[in-house]
Amino acid sequence: MGRKPNETPEIPDDMFTPASPGIVTKAETSAAPLTFWQEAWRRLRKNKGALAGLITIVFLIVVSLIGPLFNEYSYSQQDLVRSNLPPKIAGLEWLGFDGTRSSGENTYEERGITANAWFGTDEFGRDLWTRLWKATQVSLFIGVVAAFLDLLIGVVYGGISAFYGGRLDNVMQRIIEVLVGIPNLIVIILFILIFEPGILSIILAMIITGWVGMARVVRGQILQLKGQEFILAARTLGTSNGKLIWKHLFPNVMGPIIITVMFTIPSAIFFEAFLSFIGLGLQPPLASLGVLIEDGYQSMRFFSYKLIFPAIVISALMISFNLLADGLRDALDPKMRR
């Protein structure tokens, strides 16, 4: 048969001898194996939006904790002499922090006040800088605690429902459907009307129906995992139920649980703000971002600074949490990993 030789004259003849078996063995890739969480963190870092969100959240948490220590005013201390002071910061006058009202007069000079109120004061003379960070603390606390309690109840409920299945699952799902069927605003309003409005009652009111979402997520995930062959394999190996839950099921639902929590926190914060805004939330002098916004909204036309600062903080919180949650969803999505 006419065989055309390969046209590569530069290859020396001694290359045409069988290769030593040493070459054949595949070189081991020596890169250290990444755990799931390490890899998720690597992916999250690549996501600029999520990283910005994370940094903003950390920044706001830190500032809300140390911010009130920067001046001598407390969030509840009233001083009618200092009422309705516009914001004034020494050195930042060019940015508008010069103590002038929207009408152009300088309140500080009129009243002869020398101590600056950085973000201004409210009608009772309470320092808004201190109140803003106190409010951020309270809002974050409500959001985190509500999300954490949702998580606790939801994971246990959803987990039991899915893991044991059968009739129990059926009954538990019907209960959830009933809870979902009741408009949650009515439940919450009734709850707050009966109990005193306060941090505790708001949190309780929110989790009374809030855990349902988490329970559904967890149940769906576990039902899906239960059919996977590695669960069957663990059963045939004689693994106990407890170990099955902790070693096989739980690590695999952690991702979706974290994502759900990250979406729950901002919606809890927002819901609290909404309740405060319609007057069902915290009562002054206690402040939350919703309370401040409500106050600011009343006098928006004359003292717009009362509305602007809490609005900026709540917007930053909402956007940051949502960006971070989105990033986490991409980073933890099991579909990305094979």
Binding site: G2, N6, P18, A19
Partner: peptide
């Protein structure tokens, strides 16, 4: 059956 050359150069097409 790999030869030394196989690990360094891509073979061309040969018409049989």
């Amino acid at each position: 059956y790999a030869l030394k050359v196989c690990h360094q150069y891509e073979p061309g097409k040969t018409k049989v």
